[in-house]
């Protein structure tokens, strides 16, 4: 009897822990809302969603790479490169906006292809490759911009405030479209299932007949393309690209993915609800701290603390899961 209770308790705890990011998200949201009721207003929610959209898109790309057991540290620099080069193309070369955006996406594609080349053909470790391009791309961008901030025309900054269906801001709309597309790709296409298979064990996948080289190439290219898109979308909100832009975004994206339940060793993770919740959690905390007028220097400390708490709880879940799933051998426990 007592035993049963105990088992039920831990099963309950497990269920609770399984939804930790979601629960934390709701908790944080409600707490902030109770302290400052403005927090519940649509304007604020829209604000959080809009600021989530660009980092969310980057985090989705990161998740694809993490799913295969890799990592891409260069996304922050790539955001910087794509946003700056698109801005330069418009301003200095008179590119129409759409063409500049396409060019930026092509740059992302090329960078992703370069990563894939280094990882697949040169057999280099993703960590080192992307750490190198993190530095190199930043240097390249500074060279192109001569370390001067790039301003975008107001036409593009206007895009951020454009509404679809009267209430969905354009960045949020793009975010939602990407969520749906990637989610469908992961769950319901052979490519998506193959990404999970390669992430579980690339040798097993290769033996089963999956072209794992192709899968790796696809995820790194998609990750870079999404980072480029993320860069452009964030600029539609900021209107200007400064020299320090994009710094640390890679870690934010990784944190969002991991908070959403993505494993760093591959094969486990999801875009929805996973990464979406992870991203929203980080953004809600940051927005809330602004609303509460917490010391600006204190804010990153609290954000880091909450991320630590979330991944700590996630580890507790994994440990508890292992303990619960340990099979019972003796009869008495049936």
């Amino acid at each position: 009897m007592n035993n049963n209770n105990k088992a039920n308790m831990s099963a309950f705890a497990l269920k609770l822990l399984k939804n930790i990011p979601l629960l934390l998200f709701i908790l944080v949201f409600v707490v902030f809302g109770l302290i400052t009721p403005v927090f519940f207003e649509w304007d604020n929610i829209e604000n959080i969603l809009t600021s989530s959209s660009y980092i969310g898109i980057v985090a989705i790309g990161m998740t694809l790479v993490l799913l295969t057991g890799g990592i891409d540290l260069s996304v922050g620099s790539l955001m910087f490169l794509s946003a700056s080069s698109a801005g330069l193309l418009i301003r200095n070369f008179g590119f129409p906006i759409w063409l500049a955006i396409v060019s930026a996406i092509v740059i992302g594609l090329l960078v992703g292809a370069f990563h894939a080349f280094c990882i697949n053909k040169l057999k280099l470790v993703p960590f080192i490759v992307t750490l190198s391009t993190l530095v190199a791309l930043k240097g390249l961008t500074l060279m192109l911009t001569k370390s001067v901030a790039v301003e975008w025309p107001s036409a593009i900054t206007g895009m951020a405030s454009r509404r679809l269906l009267g209430f969905i801001p354009l960045p949020v709309f793009i975010f939602i479209v990407i969520i749906i597309l990637v989610q469908l790709m992961l769950k319901s296409t052979p490519l998506g299932r193959h990404i999970y298979a390669v992430g579980y064990n690339s040798e097993v996948a290769a033996k089963a007949g999956i072209d794992h080289i192709k899968i790796i190439a696809v995820v790194y290219i998609l990750c870079s393309v999404l980072a480029a898109i993320g860069g452009i979308i964030s600029v539609t909100q900021l209107g200007i690209v400064n020299a320090g832009y994009g710094e640390g975004e890679e870690f934010k994206a990784i944190a969002a993915a991991v908070l959403g339940g993505t494993s760093l060793s591959g094969g486990v993770g999801s875009v929805f609800p996973g990464v979406v919740i992870g991203t929203l959690l980080i953004q809600v905390v940051q927005a809330g701290l602004v609303y509460l007028q917490v010391d600006i220097y204190m804010q990153p400390i609290i954000t880091a603390g909450i991320i630590l708490l979330a991944i700590l709880l996630d580890s507790l879940r994994t440990m508890l899961e292992k303990r619960l799933e340990r099979r019972n051998i003796t009869k008495s426990c049936e």
């Binding site: 299932r193 999970y196 298979a197 992430g199 579980y200 064990n201 097993v204 996948a205 033996k207 089963a208 094969g267 486990v268």
Partner: peptide
């Protein structure tokens, strides 16, 4: 060694 993906 079985050739299966345990996460699928």
């Amino acid at each position: 060694e079985l050739n299966l993906c345990n996460n699928l």
